[in-house]
Amino acid sequence: MPTPRHYLMCPPRYFAVDYAINPWMDPTQPVDRDLALAQWTRLRDTYRSFGHTVDEIEPQPGLPDMVFAANSGTVVDSQVLGSRFRAPERSAEAEHFRRWFVEHGYRDVIMPSKINEAEGDFAWTGRVLLAGTGFRTDPEAHAEAQEALGVPVVSLRLTDPRYYHLDTALFVLAEATDSAPAQVAYYPEAFSPGSRRVLARLFPDAVRADEADASCLGLNGVSDGHNVVLPGEATALAARLAERGYEPVLVDISELRKAGGGPKCCTLEIRK
């Protein structure tokens, strides 16, 4: 069933690919900022059409990746854990998001001491926080998140550089409830053998994506428990989700994908 969600997003007013910090980024290729803004606007309006709340943070010049708001905070039960970026090009984003939370009533914002790229590498399942490492977030940040948020953390190792964040290889379809376990979709080949075994044990009924699903960033999806927003090319994944009773919603994020982002990258969830 769909549940109301609260999201924080950042318009891509200064979007560009001026540097390369993941395999998707190629500064020699042109970027259409107007198209990126149109795609982002449709994504935002899609959320609002489902009845979700979408707040916006003001973008800042010189921070072209600020549109990828998911990397800037993790919020569980109104507790905010900020971010600490690995790439110096993005480091200033963390303070802008910290100030937004403080100005909007979240007084106890914890800023990490370890490299922690927030919901890029953290996925809340309603019971445990799945935590990725291997390319961006430090393994030590997982323990720091457990202390800050007071939730159990399960570490997962990513091994394919194309899937440099957990949210490029896994997303939560439905959070756990008192009567039902969490449901997730993921791309097994993005993970180490041990992490695959952990995922199979935790989520035996998961939707397992294939290379075609993953290679268009199809696992960078956003679900409210019923409506599942996916990149437009993820048609096979959409069909499998529809068979499970979900309502796939395909959106065009082709311009934003030039920087390695998709629907989830643009969407920080605020869980109160």
Rank of each mutant, 00 (worst) to 15 (best):
C10D: 02
T137E: 11
A238F: 14
V76F: 03
A69D: 01
Y14T: 07
L250M: 10
G134V: 08
R162H: 12
D55A: 15
F171N: 01
S223Q: 04
V17N: 15
P59Q: 07
A143H: 10
P12M: 02
A176F: 11
P193Q: 02
P2Y: 15
R99A: 13
P30D: 09
C10N: 03
T46W: 01
L158M: 14
A214C: 06
G82W: 12
R244W: 15
D18I: 08
L199A: 13
A69N: 01
V172N: 09
D167V: 15
K258F: 11
D108F: 14
R86P: 05
R196L: 07
V249T: 14
R127H: 09
A180R: 14
V67F: 04
Q39F: 00
T137W: 13
L158W: 08
D108Q: 11
E147A: 09
H6K: 07
G82E: 13
V198A: 04
Y163G: 01
R13C: 01
V54Q: 11
F85V: 08
L268V: 07
P112Y: 14
D224Y: 10
E247A: 07
Y164I: 13
L250N: 13
D18P: 05
Y186D: 03
R44Y: 03
Q183Y: 13
D205Y: 04
A36S: 00
R201V: 12
D178C: 02
E140Q: 15
P188S: 09
P88K: 05
D121P: 12
L173G: 15
S192V: 08
G150P: 04
D213M: 13
H96K: 15
Y47G: 12
P27K: 02
A242M: 07
G126L: 11
V207G: 08
R48E: 10
L202E: 12
A123E: 14
P193Y: 04
R127V: 10
H52L: 10
A141C: 05
S192Y: 10
G194H: 13
S215C: 09
C266F: 02
S91Q: 09
M25G: 11
S254E: 12
F50V: 07
G126R: 09
P11G: 03
D26F: 00
C216W: 00
T133N: 11
L37C: 00
I115F: 05
E140I: 10
L217R: 07
L217V: 14
R196V: 12
G245D: 06
V67L: 01
